[in-house]
Design a protein around this nucleic acid. Structure first.
Lengths: 240, 240
DNA sequence: CGTAGTATGTACGCTAGCGCACAATACGGC
DNA sequence: GCCGTATTGTGCGCTAGCGTACATACTACG
């Protein structure tokens, strides 16, 4: 049922470390499976570990007083959960829940902090990632303001697709709606259009992308901005 | 016309540094006046300096392909402009323009980077600020999705007010609209309501806040979240 | 193989905010 | 003191998305 066991380098941040650095960390990196819906961190809660996803996807989101919610960013194999541990605040008002079940490597918080404070390549990688995350959150803010549900759905699907090896996401419309902070019916409608255009097919919690280029034709610019910024920052990190 | 000359400690980040550290930087900190509308950084552009506002306010915003725009965060005397210089990306897709004329201290980019890489108190302060900025951007994203123009206007006014000494903002409705990413008429309407409630008064580009508590009665929770997070992060930084 | 429960489809009235057009006002410069 | 321009006020019709309600259909599990 599960895919083959994950490798360290399936996480882009770990993969970006110099071999010697990674080698040093390996004995502390613990592989864990994260079930769908698991809450890793509530608003203001403290993380004991930082997580480097390989196949799992974690959603960073807010829950408002009136109960409505919105994702501000996702974290997959391109990133990590737990930046507040080295940024100094120890926690954030954000929730973190598992949006797609899968594996992560985790590292004890104090250990990460110690490594970060050495100021070596790990610090450089983590700070770059943090900047990329800021771009992602910013773009979410703008997208929320200016783009249609259909465009946002395409953005979200593409970003999620990029974090998976497969073309199929296990994901109900209800869940997508709560990520985007819109009504479930809004997703039904937008997804219906995409299905009619034979871009996706779905059945009860399984969405299959038939035509990735089609999604890119319906998406807003926000997807590209985020994508290119991640590429730029990690192209550079290898150089430096 | 201008207020008395700014002190270093009018910027909260500079004020949070240990005296010895600040003393060392002082000779490199250059006081500059920033006129309204000045563009400090375009999307992808590189900053030569980082800026620590004392009385100026800088807006971080995006401009979309279709010309519409949105602020993702503001930077006043509580913060700094130019985090990408030490985060490692050197630039961002964000624009930075002067939203309220006033003074900043600026520091040459390479010099800041050198200081940052010492790993001392300056690094700690800047990383904390970056985390607070992430919270601000995230909250903007959520607020854009879920709250009314009136609520957002109140949030924006309160945040701006906190960065000024005065109760009067020099600011057209057109400009506020482009910050929030809404129509100018939307601001006219929301501001009209606040004026009727005698919470604000305005005349051609000058908004005077008559009743701050009134604003707090109309604002959404987002203001408090951002405010408290800044307080928390800087309470801690003094301790550590 | 049947059924309970979850997931999706659809419909309808409602509201916030948009886009546009144009009127009315106030300020700054001469 | 007057005029031109920038700013604000107002009034449409329009659309996207909301809230609600309920119908349908899948699939997992007994």
């Amino acid at each position: 049922m599960q895919n083959p066991p994950p490798q360290f380098n399936q996480n882009h941040l770990l993969a970006a470390l110099p071999p010697a650095e990674l080698e040093r960390l390996k004995s502390h990196l613990e592989l864990v499976h994260m079930p769908l819906g698991d809450v890793l961190c509530e608003s203001g809660g403290r993380l004991s570990y930082v997580y480097f996803p390989t196949s799992a996807i974690i959603s960073l989101h807010y829950i408002l007083e009136n109960g409505s919610s919105s994702e501000v960013a996702g974290v997959g194999n391109e990133g990590m959960l737990g930046i507040s541990l080295f940024m100094g605040g120890e926690n954030t008002p954000t929730w973190a829940t598992v949006q797609t079940a899968g594996y992560c490597y985790r590292l004890k918080g104090p250990l990460l902090l110690q490594e970060f404070n050495q100021g070596g390549p790990l610090q450089r990688v983590l700070l770059r990632y943090t900047q990329a995350l800021i771009t992602q959150i910013s773009q979410t803010a703008v997208c929320n303001r200016h783009h249609t549900i259909e465009q946002q759905l395409c953005r979200w699907l593409l970003l999620t697709l990029d974090r998976l090896n497969s073309q199929e996401l296990v994901m109900t419309q209800e869940l997508i709606a709560s990520m985007l902070g819109v009504r479930r019916e809004g997703i039904t409608e937008a997804a219906g259009k995409l299905q009619q255009a034979e871009i996706i097919r779905y059945r009860r919690g399984h969405i299959t992308v038939l035509n990735r280029a089609g999604l890119q034709g319906h998406v807003c610019e926000c997807y590209d901005v985020v994508k290119k910024e991640f590429e730029r920052l990690f192209r550079d990190v290898r150089k430096s």
